[in-house]
Design a binder for these strands. Structure first.
Lengths: 99, 99, 99, 99
DNA sequence: GTGGTCTAGACCACT
DNA sequence: GTGGTCTAGACCACA
């Protein structure tokens, strides 16, 4: 799934891997992601690499983090992809979570 | 008052908040502090975070804890310097607790 | 070595265990301690319990922590008394860390 | 369910109440009990009273406690009541949990 | 891959 | 009903 010899940066590959799981619905909105440490072991890469991938997905609005609790799949992106525009309220709600 | 998005750790912010209350005299020597669980609810953080703040103030001699009773404002170094001598008993009591 | 049914808090037992290693010279000044997560596994207790033990030893000046690197044995008061003067630089370094 | 005006001590009433839940299978072996604080609120009694009740059930082998985790329904008593004697292995297993 | 911070609880010891 | 200890994790900042 992840090719360490690929010219594509590993964090991009992981980023794409997670984005796919969300798009395919294998990771549902509100659901907790595997922890950074789990991904770190699974892909045999450093936690920094995992964090790079996750941080991009957070910035893109796919995920949000809650310190001490975990990383979660956001509502917005999923609905945007599915339904086009989200309502103002939903948007604000998602942003609130992202804090 | 407390900014969860600040790079300053929450427990440091709370520590500073309580230290200020003492300095401004809103918390008087001998007075009982709100309980850890009350602060926990007030600031919407976990009790361990509150304990980190209070523990630092205990180590600095601003507060002392009494098991089963609560957390109290100590006879501070500041007041000792300002008001001269405290009574021997009070002094020993404060020192004992300050440990 | 650690008795979970003892009335002595586990963190105190671990604190004493590490202090002994230092006193007996099995942990030499400057040496890196096993990581908190290693101790956590070794003693089958949560990391927070290990941290309580280590934090006390840090406050007492036996150990110092370096973010991202590890926990190290300090140039102890004991050795300072025994060996006379340490170099100015080493001394300042130890004091800085001991804070 | 609990009668504060009864001559039967409140902790005995609570003890009996929980024992019944176990006997009726509403609390299954391995299951977590509601926390001391929850019971304390539910019955409007102090936590000491709850602890008295639970401690008796622990001593009788109906429950076991895991610090930091919770109080759980034991296997033994249930099986003893149902099947008479438990096997040596099961007994040891239950004792192991009780640690 | 370490230490730092934090969560959302739990049971324990004590007043 | 307080503070004390502890769990089983999580994410964060750094080297």
């Amino acid at each position: 799934m992840i090719d360490k010899n690929s010219p594509v940066p590993i964090y991009s590959q992981i980023e794409e891997y997670i984005r796919d799981l969300i798009r395919k619905g294998e990771l549902q909105p509100g659901q907790t992601l595997p922890s950074e440490r789990e991904y770190s072991e699974q892909f045999q890469v450093s936690r920094m690499t995992i964090r790079q991938a996750i941080t991009k997905l957070v910035n893109e609005g796919y995920l949000y983090r809650k310190k001490g609790s975990g990383t979660f799949v956001a509502e917005t992106k999923f609905e945007q992809a599915l339904q086009g525009l989200t309502s103002f309220t939903e948007d604000m709600k998602a942003r609130a979570y992202a804090k």
